[in-house]
Structure formats: C-alpha cells, structure tokens
Design a protein around this nucleic acid. Structure first.
Lengths: 350, 350
DNA sequence: CGCAGGCGTTTAATCGATTTAGCAGTTCTC
DNA sequence: GAGAACTGCTAAATCGATTAAACGCCTGCG
C-alpha cells in the first residue's frame, strides 16, 4: 500500500538511486545499456512513478499551473475555456489547480498566494466576460489573461475578436439584402468592451455597404430574454419606413427575446424579420425555432491559447496587445432576404 | 523577487528555523512569549509564507484535493458542483486539482496516477449525470463519488434524491387536481438511474392518490427539446378521454419541447396543460413562457458534501449507501388546475 | 611499470520545510 | 549542595527526489 520510492527501484535493480534517476530521466550520462535495461525493468516491476512533490522541491518546477477565474458557476462558457486549457495541460503532462474567486478580491489575493506557495509554474487569470481588469498586485510576471484585457499592459492576453465577429454577422445580413439593420445592444452602467467592439464592427459594415447609420436602430436592453424582447418591441413600434428588417443582437438570450417579440406580432422568422445573435449558446441558439444564426465565441480555442502561452509552447505575436481569437459565424435558419416591401424600399434607395 | 524562506525569517528574528516553524505552526512547545512575538513580527516584515511543496514533502500531506470529472464542458451543471466543492476546499485552506477525463479511460488512469504522484490528500470522482460507474482500479480508498454510484460499494457517494424529487413534482400536479398525469421519460439504450428512480416516484404518488397507472401515459423521447416535443405529440394525439392534463418531464429541455408541441396545437400552459420539468436549468426553465415549474438538482450542495467527506469534516450517515441529497421543487407558473372538462372528468372518477 | 584519461557508477549536497531528541541554563527539592 | 525537574531553544534527521562532483577501475600509451 505504501508508495514505491526511488530507493525501492534502486534496491531491486542493484544500483544507486542516482543511477535510477539518471536512467528514468533520460539524462545524457554514461550509463551502460545493460544497467539502463535493468533499471527500467525494475521500475516497471515495482510500479514506480516519481513523487512529484519531492521532484518539485528539488527541481523548483512543479509541472503545475494555477487557473484563477472570477466565476465558474454561472456560465456555460466557463467549461469550454477550462476544457481548452485543460487539454493542453494534459497533453504536456501538467496538472491544473482551479480556483474560483467569485470576484472577491480577498479570495483572489489568497488564491494567488496559495498558488505561489504551491510553486505553480505559471498562472492564468480568467474572466467569464471579455472586459478590462485591474491586474492584482501579487500576480506574478508571466501570468496570462484569458478572456480579459489587463488594464496595464505587459501581460499576454487572449480575447475574442468581437469586432470581426460583428462584421461577419452584419455582413451576412447585408449579403441577404438587408439595409435597415438594427443593433440590439446591452444596457449596463459599465458595458463590456464587447459591446463597443461589436458596435464598431456593425458601423464598419454599414459604412462599407454605403448605409448611413440610423441612431433609432441602435437600441439597448438588459442581457436577458426580457431585455431583448423589450428592445425589439421598441424597434417594431417604429413607423414602417424606419422599421428594421434585420436585427443584430448582442447575445443569443436577447435574440431569443427578439423571437418572442416577433412572434407576438405574428411576424415569421426569417420571412418577416432576420435575426443574428452572438455567443452560440447551445441551449438557446440551437433550440430556438427556427434555429438561430449566430456568432460563436471561441472559448475552447482561447483556453488552449492561454495554456500554450503559460507553458511557453507559444509566444504571443504582438506582446503589447491582446491576441484576437476569431469568432466564426454559425449559419442556421434565422436569416433570409428582407420582406418584399422592404426589399423594394431598399432597392429604391440604392 | 526570490521567495522568502524560513531561514530568512530565522535570521531576521535571530533564532533557528526550528523555532520559527514551532512558532508559526502554533506547536505546543516551550517558546517564550518574547521570542514568539519576535518571530511573528519578523515573518510579517519579510512577508514569509511557507513553501507548500517543501512542507508537503515533509508532512506527507499536501492540503490538496484531486477532482476528476468525466466531462466538464458540456453541461452547465458542472460549474455548480465544482463551485460547491471549491468553496469547501477554500474555507479549509485546500487547493483543488481539476482533471477532465472526457470519459476516456486512459486519460482517467493517467490522471489518477498524476494526482497520486502529487500526493493529493483525497480524490473526488465526479460524473455529470447520476449513474452507476465502475470504480477505476487505481482509485485510492477513501475517494468520494459525486453524482454517481460506484458499482462496488465501500466508497462514500452522493447523488440527488431523484425519487423524492419526482414525488414532490407529481404531488404538486395531484394537488392541483390532476388525475391523468404523464411521465415523459428519456429513451436511451442505457437510461440513467435517474430515469428509473423518477419513474418510481411517479408511480408512488399515483398509488397514494389512488390513480391507476396508465402505460399509455409513460412515453419516451430523447433528451432534447425535439425529443420532448415528439413524445408530447404522441400524448396529445391520444383520444380525449385518455389524454393527459399534466406532464411530468424527465428534464427541462424535454419540457421545453412539450411547450412547443402544446403551442402548436393552440394549447395554453397551464390553462390547458400543466407541465413540470426537472433540473432547473436556468437558461431553459426560467426563460420559458410561462416560466417552468421544475425540480432543482442540488449540484452545489452535492459538491459541498463530497468535499466535506473528502476532507474528513463529515462522515456519511450510512457508509453503505449513497447519500441522497434532496431536490427542492421550484414553483413557477406552468402548473394550474386541469381544464374544466377534464376536471369534471376526474371528479366523476373520484 | 606508471600515469593519464575515459567509462560507469556512486557519494553526498540540495531543495525548504517539520519534528524529535537533546543541550544548556535555571530553579526546585531534600 | 547535588541531583532532579523544568525552561527555552537548537542541532540534526527527515521527507524523496535530482545532480554535480568524485571515485574506482580499466585501458592505452610512453
């Protein structure tokens, strides 16, 4: 029952522990082939695996990574980021400590200390929403930021390319023939940077399509189905000429609300109204009727990227700026050409 | 930048490292108050925190727990279990290693070995669905099972009390006056134990209400919105006399499908059809219209329980059987009295 | 034959803590 | 006043690995 130690292997093979260590770690040392084989055989027979704690103490490298996140519980995205980070760690023989701080600064500070005491080789600081965060004072150099931008630079970071994602989404609507496209934005005291970036992307596509932005088509609501429904109601209350034929929603839940608002007025999606969401939240987007065209957040890939940088396998292209991970568009069935009247209307203007 | 060691504290306080260790660990040793204060002051001044790796090697206790789970990514529940486990660990100064095996046995075996090499003080083996699992051979004694039942006993385990949850759900329907209550079950080659347990609870309530079970009201579909919709369609195609006035669904997604089926026939919930789900999946249950009455899965509490047992803070009441965690019913708006005709029908039979 | 040098292996230091046994010095006891 | 008992602290062993330095032994060379 007691663990097998290196000295047990040494005894079994009739050599010193030094030799065992040299052999098992493939150190380029002068060890005869006969001895090598004997050691390896002995190790296999007694079922030896080195004690990581002892090794960590000696080598000062624990093959361990600390992953600090503000909230793990509340979002289904968390798992995908973890999964990506996890997979890379495993592929390289690392283990990960997970700490959920619940956005509590005291907990965060303690966690960082505890992880440092455990001699983690690197730390990843993850947020559940793309936003700007203050760098905790005690966070060691070399830590990687995941799904957030450190307020002071000097740290590698990876975030979704929200701007490009919005561009893809709105271009899809323009390509379908829409000219009156609304942006159903979040309404919060401190909107996440994603809100602004997606708005930028939205405006960029309008500009490249020669469509003048209409402030009446930029509405806000809170990040829920209800918020999306209310904001959409305001859009659909607009006079026919001003009313949008397509909606670009800040997220899938708001898009779900837009569905409700449309259904209540007897509008059919996408015949009467096209809708694009953001996030590709499986339980929402795929379950809607019709399934929602949306933009996927590359959580898994971001998790991988962060861990790869943490392990030193990859170095950021531009150490000064966050790495932008592409957000692929997921085509489903909520986008179609604008209704005939509106289409002719848009043709008139072109 | 270099870490502060215990010898630095010793030097600063003018004592030996032994004394520093004795003081800082509150060992009942004969140390004068003056020295105690001096050591503590010195430790605070130089900012000393003990190196957990070195301490772990010496004490053979790492204050570290390994949490192995089959899938973390795919379910929103995972986070809540983690959160519960995490919170308990943090409250007691433990750190947790998280490993996601993706249900791959090789990965699982390697993970168990790696965790053992890291000298974790205990392991928790978590599944994302309540089911029976084979105990991996290398899993150390004392490991705790979370949301699954070990095939061979001898391990503490915690699972949701699916039977009692179903009882509460079906009782709510009976209390509202329903007599024709269907069970919309999962349809899988190897249904989870939860499926059977909930069926048992369902039958139990029918029996106690003096309602004879009708096999036609036990339908199956796959665990998705579509599966729920199809199964519900079959129920609603039944002749009026046989048609259920209430549905107890295996989970919220299937319940969402039931909503769709009902809406398509112009049935209003709960006036024409009452529905109860299971899982309390926020993004589904709370967002439905009307919000779904459902039974919550106590993931957070199960996570806490498992960690408490792992840390030895709590001992299972009955070491032989899994601990059953209560599933509270969450009352929302999808349950009402049966429609007049059916109600009179039920009254006729009573 | 004596010595340099190469080869294969071992000795021993080391990582940074904890902990037991023991060492001085003081006080108490008879 | 000698030994016992107590007090306050430290020396050194220990946990289980890694690794630089050293140590025999053998061979080759002059």
């Amino acid at each position: 029952m007691a663990r097998v130690r290196i000295s047990d292997v040494a005894a079994a093979a009739g050599v010193s522990t030094a030799t065992v260590s040299l052999v098992l770690n493939d150190r380029t040392a002068r060890i005869s082939d006969a001895t090598r084989d004997r050691v390896r055989q002995a190790a296999a027979e007694v079922g030896y695996t080195p004690n990581s704690v002892a090794r960590g103490l000696r080598t000062q490298r624990s093959r361990t990574i600390g992953l600090i996140s503000d909230r793990i519980a509340t979002t289904p995205f968390a798992g995908r980021m973890l999964s990506g980070a996890q997979d890379v760690a495993r592929e390289h023989g690392y283990l990960v400590f997970l700490v959920d701080t619940d956005a509590d600064e005291t907990v965060e500070r303690e966690a960082i200390r505890a992880l440092a005491d455990q001699q983690v080789d690197a730390m990843i600081y993850a947020c559940m929403w793309h936003r700007v965060v203050d760098v905790p004072a005690s966070l060691p150099r070399g830590s990687v930021f995941l799904d957030c931008r450190p307020a002071d630079g000097g740290f590698p970071a990876v975030v979704p390319d929200d701007r490009a994602g919005a561009v893809a989404a709105v271009r899809a609507l323009v390509a379908a023939g829409h000219r009156r496209i609304a942006y159903v934005d979040v309404d919060e005291p401190h909107p996440p940077v994603a809100s602004f970036l997606r708005h930028d992307g939205y405006l960029e596509v309008l500009a490249e399509a020669g469509i003048g932005p209409d402030p009446a088509l930029h509405v806000r609501g809170d990040t829920s189905s209800a918020g999306g429904r209310e904001a959409t109601d305001r859009l659909l209350d607009l006079p026919a000429q001003q009313r949008p034929t397509a909606l670009f929603c800040f997220n899938d839940r708001m898009a779900a609300g837009a569905y409700v608002a449309a259904h209540r007025r007897g509008l059919v999606i996408p015949q009467d109204l096209s809708i694009v969401g953001y996030d590709d939240q499986q339980l929402v987007a795929a379950e809607l009727d019709p399934p929602l065209t949306t933009v996927a957040l590359p959580h898994y890939e971001m998790g991988r990227w962060a861990m790869e940088v943490a392990l030193g396998i990859r170095t950021p292209d531009d150490p000064g700026a966050p790495h932008l991970m592409p957000c692929p568009i997921v085509d489903r069935d909520s986008v179609g050409p604008p209704p005939a009247t509106a289409a002719s209307d848009s043709r008139r203007r072109t």
